[in-house]
Simulated assay, not measured.
Amino acid sequence: MASLATHLSACLFFVPIGIRRLLCSSSLYLKNPSLFKSKPWYFSNPKWKNLDLYILSIALPIASFCQIFFFLSISGHPTYRFSFFQHFASLCLFWVLTIFFVLYENLDHFLFNESFIYIYAAIAFLVEYSVIGVGITGLGSVVYELLAQLTLVCAGSCLVLSIKPTAFFAEFLLSTGLVFKGTWLLQAGLCLYTDAFVLKGCNKMVLLPASSNADVHCELEEDGMRGVALVNLLFVVHAIGVVIAGFVVFGLLSSFRNLRFGEASGPLLAELESESILMRPSHEHEME
């Protein structure tokens, strides 16, 4: 959480994943809502179309190790070091999650069932929740508290999907939640770590003297109160924008079949058709 670059890279992780999940899950749901079943990762054929997953499996460990080694080289404060170690552990958990996705595609699904992967994802989000905003006080803590709430939404959605993978609402909430996390991370980086977009009357985030905490310094108390109100307003605007965009995407996919993802081929369609064939005799028996 230490710079605009960190927030931007996190945004580039979360937003594409959320958009991909939203497109693929909505396409699968619209094909046959009664047979919808959420997937930990929506694979496509040929395999090169899953390039984003393999990029994540390489980028996440690089990001986590770069973060911990860069911090240890510039800071000697024990508390601040521990905070960075927590962020390092959180990144590693999400890296292991991408490994589970890769193994789930290539190995027997009984070894890594979907419920286990969703529960693990929920635990990873909860660990991330526990480290968000550590060492941040004042106006910055308000920004990160809102980010923590989004993380809880993602964790709750994963828990629901681990119990009921047919819950499309939870899948929609998870997908839009990931997009929202990404856009809010970018907003936080701009508001807290840049001079150009810093809130009026305040300075960008700095480490407090003789302390392990960081804060956004505002000249007047009124500036701080106005900053909190503006942060809440920006959060609401982000929420409205992401929700509207999600419904627009769902509406477009519903109206234009050629825009849908994962329907022409691939393991998702094959599994959906096999389930449809298995269910067909029971329906025919009921009609007789």
Score class of each variant (00 low, 15 high):
C202V: 12
E222F: 07
V160H: 00
S211G: 06
V198I: 10
C92Q: 15
G76A: 09
F13S: 02
L269V: 15
L146A: 02
H283S: 11
A155W: 00
L199T: 10
L161E: 02
G241P: 00
L35E: 06
F70M: 12
S175P: 01
T176A: 03
L4C: 03
G246M: 07
A245G: 03
E263H: 09
K39L: 09
T166S: 12
A210Y: 07
A245K: 12
A59V: 13
S274F: 08
S3L: 09
S57V: 09
L51Y: 15
A155V: 05
S211T: 09
F112M: 00
L30G: 01
V179E: 01
S3V: 04
V228D: 02
D108E: 10
S274Y: 06
L230N: 06
Y144V: 06
N45G: 03
C24T: 10
L173I: 07
Y120S: 04
Y129M: 11
L230D: 06
A210T: 08
V127A: 11
I99K: 13
L272S: 14
S26D: 02
V96Y: 06
L259K: 13
D195I: 12
K31D: 11
Y29F: 12
F197Q: 09
H87N: 14
L150A: 08
F14H: 11
K200E: 09
E114C: 01
D108Q: 02
A122R: 11
G135I: 10
V242S: 02
Y42A: 08
L233P: 00
G18Y: 04
F36K: 08
L91V: 08
F110G: 09
L53W: 05
V216Y: 00
L51H: 13
L259R: 13
F100W: 00
I244H: 03
I132D: 03
A167K: 08
P209C: 09
L97Q: 15
D215W: 12
